[in-house]
Design a protein around this nucleic acid. Structure first.
Lengths: 247, 247
DNA sequence: CAGACGTTAAATGTCTGACAAATAAAAATC
DNA sequence: GATTTTTATTTGTCAGACATTTAACGTCTG
């Protein structure tokens, strides 16, 4: 929204623009360099001492800036002679935890209702149905089948059942064979699972869940996207009914 | 094959990196306290000196940990007598930029193809169609109409047109009236827009876009979810055809 | 000449101590 | 009693130092 016209560092001076957070400024500057390609993957940043001289600050300040970037997995550091800070290749594995943390806190801190979270979660999962039906592999079907079989085991602990539930839905999302989609959805599903577990833990009927999961598997096997979406809607309704059975 | 100087021995395990990163350990510990509720929103953390004593490290180390948390908007700091570090109420506005940054870098650093990104983007947007049709307000329709009118102006610069395009789609997502969905989708749309602009900038026909946008508006007005999804599919196909014109 | 081995230098990780700046509460003044 | 001043607390920043890690260099030996 704000006009980002900070492309002229030559005329830049230690102005009075509320610059009481040097480490944040430095971190932002380096981050922008990474985003717009001036610093490419695996490029080595100047040493902390050099950065300190370059930005005319002390080394602790530079270090705080680097730690900010490290917290976002934008850089990695290595000790030793040819060590230093390197631009990190951001991988899905590294981005997942942050995504989950952020989503979890957003839900818990902003009073998101169970219904709203649930609605979002199933809408997103529904978005995968079409692609999953066209792109799913037989291996993925086997994986889904395996989880369903696990869930049929009545001796399974509640915790393990929930874990298997998450695995099932993540595998379902993976059926779309689109890593971007998997990334986005994994964050959403993982973040909402604790919330959903807390509410539906005791009330859920495993038989109903297993039946619906089986129906999803069948729809995927037959590549029937519409029927797949319908089952997801049923699962959505059932989950909602667990949360508010007040009558 | 060129000899790669950055070989990665597969036997190398990332297990021994926990030994020397005190600031990361401290940051993780505090983060977990926030997540599981031991530290609630607006709670004040101990002062840096107290934290240093508590964790038996020096103040700079504590500060690096706090900067890591600040980079994720988990805490805010305030100077002065009754200042300190406070648990931040994570808002969507604060989470957006990080979400966009992460998504942008994930796309650009992992060689995500245009088709894959496009597929994910439209699948996600499609997920909103059903909810948008039931929940949209007349105000939102007006906002969409306003953007379409802007896009009809032939004197609009390419940049402004793209900007309006983003606004249109974000407003569309907002029609679902689900903040969680808006958050997830905004990240995806914002992150993919630069990629899509780069490819479709010159080739796109504004008339086609405007027509499709109008069709979306009509579908929303009539609350016809299926027709809305179909138009989105058309837009998807058209965008894809721009990237690989078989003519 | 080649390989093993010790040395060295560079870089990050950490600590100590200090001062500056901001800020709210307490104290002093009118 | 209201306003002003002082004070204490806390973060922001700096300087210097030492420890630790690690790659590169040089030396010694077979």
């Amino acid at each position: 929204m704000s006009d980002n016209s900070e492309k002229r560092p030559s005329t830049r001076k230690p102005a009075r623009r509320a610059a009481s957070d040097l480490s944040a400024d430095i971190a932002n500057e380096i981050r922008d360099s990474i985003i717009d390609g001036r610093l490419i993957v695996d490029a080595r940043l100047p040493s902390e001492a050099e950065l300190a001289a370059q930005f005319a600050v002390s080394r602790p300040t530079v270090r705080e800036a680097l730690k900010r970037l490290a917290a976002q997995s934008l850089i990695r550091t290595q000790r030793g002679a040819s060590g230093g800070a390197f631009v990190n290749r951001l991988s899905y594995e590294q981005a997942y935890p942050q995504q989950v943390t952020t989503a979890t806190l957003l839900l818990s801190m902003n009073g998101i209702s169970f219904a709203t979270a649930c609605e979002a979660r199933f809408a997103l999962e529904r978005a995968c149905a079409l692609l999953a039906c066209s792109n799913r592999t037989d291996q993925q079907l086997d994986a889904l089948k395996f989880e369903i079989e696990r869930q049929k085991d009545t001796f399974l602990s509640d915790e393990t059942f929930c874990q298997s539930d998450v695995s099932f839905h993540r595998t379902f999302v993976d059926c779309a064979c689109n890593p971007v989609l998997s990334y986005q959805l994994a964050g959403a599903i993982e973040a909402m699972q604790p919330l959903m577990n807390m509410i539906t833990y005791t009330r859920r009927s495993r038989a109903v869940i297993v039946d619906l999961h089986s129906a999803i598997l069948d729809a995927l096997a037959d590549r029937k996207a519409t029927s797949c979406e319908n089952v997801l809607d049923e699962l959505h309704s059932y989950t909602l009914s667990l949360a508010s059975p007040k009558s």
